[in-house]
């Protein structure tokens, strides 16, 4: 499979996001006591979130350096821009849906744990939808 620089870059973002958010979700779910629902985001979870963001940034930097070593970076052309716009549109639908559910969760649950994690979950999902749909469109041709 012959991938362009943009496609490889999208794969790095896609896989990096899965790795960082997966690690965060797994670690936070391990720390929650199963008998009671967490009410507020705890300081150690904030630290975990920051660590996940740092992990994501490191994965992106290392991944893009690896791509740049083996590939000449080409400028974005009209097809890249069109695919980018379509991906952003798809991601925006998911993010808007997430904002609605996060607001609903904020109004119906105690504390900020549920609403902030609903928002975080949908943000990750929106990013995955955006990059995933771009990867799909690149393979389909447009």
């Amino acid at each position: 499979m012959n991938l362009s620089f943009q496609e490889k870059s999208l794969w790095v973002v896609f896989l990096g996001l899965i790795a960082a958010s997966g690690w965060y979700c797994y670690t936070v779910s391990e720390s929650i006591v199963p008998t009671e629902l967490a009410v507020d985001v705890m300081p150690d979870q904030v630290a975990l979130f920051i660590a996940a963001v740092v992990l994501l940034i490191i994965v992106q930097i290392v991944g893009h350096i690896a791509i740049a070593v083996g590939d000449r970076r080409s400028e974005m052309d009209e097809r890249d821009r069109l695919i980018g716009l379509k991906g952003t549109r798809n991601g925006a639908f998911v993010l808007a849906t997430g904002a609605f559910f996060a607001l609903s969760a904020a109004m119906m649950t105690k504390g900020n744990f549920v609403s902030s994690h609903v928002l975080l979950g949908f943000w990750v999902l929106a990013q995955l939808t955006e990059t995933g749909s771009q990867l799909f469109l690149y393979r389909r041709g447009r």
Binding site: S4, D77, E78, R79, R140
Partner: peptide, 22 residues
């Protein structure tokens, strides 16, 4: 032309219709 090789490939395979300018 000023596009990527992948775009030429997509045009050639009738997968992508280019802009009038391209």
């Amino acid at each position: 032309v000023g596009v990527t090789r992948q775009t030429v490939n997509a045009i050639e395979g009738n997968k992508y219709s280019p802009s009038l300018e391209v």
